[in-house]
Design a protein around this nucleic acid. Sequence first.
RNA 1: GCGCCCGUAGCUCAGCUGGAUAGAGCGACUGGCUACGAACCAGUAGGUCGGGAGUUCGACUCUCUCCGGGCGCACCA
Length: 670
Amino acid sequence: MYLELQKRFTEHLRSVLAAKYDLHLETIPLEIPPELKFGELATPIAFELARKLRKAPKVIAAEIVAALGHFDGFAGFEVAGAGYINAHLDRAAGVRTTAGVADSQVPDAGPGAPASSGIHALVEHTSINPNKAAHIGHLRNAILGDTFVRLLRAAGQKVDVQNYIDNTGVQVADVVVGFLHLEGKSLADARLLLDELKQKDQRIDYYCWDLYAKTSQWYTSGTDEENEARKKLRYDTLHELEQGCNETAEVAELISTAVLRRHLETMLRLDIEYDFLPRESEILHLKFWESAFEQLKKTGVLYFENEGKNKGCWVMTRPGAEIAEGDLNEDAKVIVRSNGTVTYVGKDIAYHLWKFGLLGKDFGYKPFFSYPNHECWISAEKGDEPHPHFGGAQAIYNVIDARQSDPQANVIQALRGMGYTEQADRYTHFSYEMVALTPRCAVELGYDVSEEDLARPYIEVSGRKGFGVKADDLIDKLIVATRAEVDARQTGGADAEAGRQKIAEQIAIGALRYFMLKFTRNSVIAFDFKDALSFEGETGPYIQYAVVRARNIFRKAETTAEAELVKLAGLAEFGAFLDGEDAEDIWALWLRAARRTLVLEQCVSTSEPAYLAKHAFQLAQEFNNFYHKHHILTEEDPARKTFLLATAAVALRELVLALSWLGIESPEAM
RNA sequence: GCGCCCGUAGCUCAGCUGGAUAGAGCGACUGGCUACGAACCAGUAGGUCGGGAGUUCGACUCUCUCCGGGCGCACCA
């Protein structure tokens, strides 16, 4: 409702300015006034025009207000302060629109839907190296990505979710080295180990977590001579993995696939699902690079360097670099090494051409992991038929941490250089800062923390060092904590034993997801159990609790939210309930509820889910406030009771919807 | 050396394309449960928005500079 009125106000204002001053402004600054007494919508446009029109802002504002007249949805306009133009909404009309059934549905491609609807988007997130357990840093990635997917879908976009699997990289090679050479095991042993872990209900990703840390340490723990040999072993192993069709690669395939399954299971606990898992092995074996290389040479993005330190390499100019014609660019990015092998960025360019459907090649597809409602596919050299098709998206979003912004910029630069400017413009590096541990948390976990690290505000998590909090451990810990709370409160009555575990899980996941989403993307999260295990204040459970409170009202009143909204529509007159000191907080709640579409559009256009997290919290806060002040069930005036019930109904509807966009369930009881 | 990010209340963070008196949560202190269950609510204290200069009618927001912290800048992935 709010977004719609905002647009109408802007349009009307624009036409007034055109008629009155012959001014044609592209954008008109709007703001939400600091207090409700100033109205619900305001513009400081008069300040801007003061110089141009050689008049005082107050005079201009008054002239504009006079010209605005009256139109639907607005109660009136006024000049305030030094020249603000404040718009007061027609509250009763606003309530009617907001309560309306049409507005309660997820905005689809229709009137009022965001401009971005109808786009085919591709979101890549999670992308954990399949050589160890997922940790809290990966959780931030996956939760941000999954939430953004939900937001895009809510905005009417068709979204494919991809999780890129680097199954032939050094990280997997390291675990294989550890397995074959450090532990002296074989391919047959790998099969045995997987069976054994399965039978004992143990986690292969946990096993690899330790092995990876051990191997990483092993590379540098011998004599210089030994270390040299170990390093060689490492690169030989890596090449065997890239090559494929050998026993080492088979071990890698076995272990990495098992770890990958574990990652999918971990993410499923958080309600995170994927459509497709493209793997690096297929990008290599299906020779994606060869096709990309031709295009890159043809368009002149890549050139062969004949001199300097990059002699013998195919290189590209870095973004922003200004090199005079004919000058040697030593700073160029190497894409093909002098030995003919391609670098990571090169492979990434090929992969991204595929994402936009510009490569002229496709993966093979095989089903890999079944969700209740759909199948997740994985890349294969020779796929199954029939299969869905992925790639060929109009817009892509890569959820990758901020440290990789340079390589990401290189890929975008390459696309632009090849003439794919539209695609480059719709390529979003959805970057976010890392999750680190507070020194206190690290000590608590029993890690050796140096004096130097103790003095820091936070310490970076490192899979290589085995330093971090594993995702499943954290989830387990959260569930234990929420279960204790649920039991202490006897949620659902003394005999509701069965349901309590489910509720505890819903609350635990809600707490975790909200915790990862409340921070804006570019702030480093210094992880601490105290904060993450908190269920009070600005947390997921706080919002879930507001939902439960609202539901309890309808349960006790023996009615439903939907029925009460219909009843409100039948009420001839309720404007009186929206006026006066006592009603301000009620109107504030309606107004907040009406801002949903605006918030959604903001989140999508800025790639920032945190705004929705904040919106949901504020909505819950205003509802709790309302809940406390106005006792609904004892209200004697039937019309007012209907109005109050409808208010709770809208709050409930909006809270549940906002939580669902955040990937958080709304429990029936708490 | 070059590039990016951050610095706002004791702590953790919001602050939309510059706009009205800089907000929230936690922590501290005070008060409120025989209410629609207190995972809640009300109140108090707490800020030279890292320092300085500039642009502007107006700067937490833009520019420059300095200080402090973090992360990138491979023929590694």
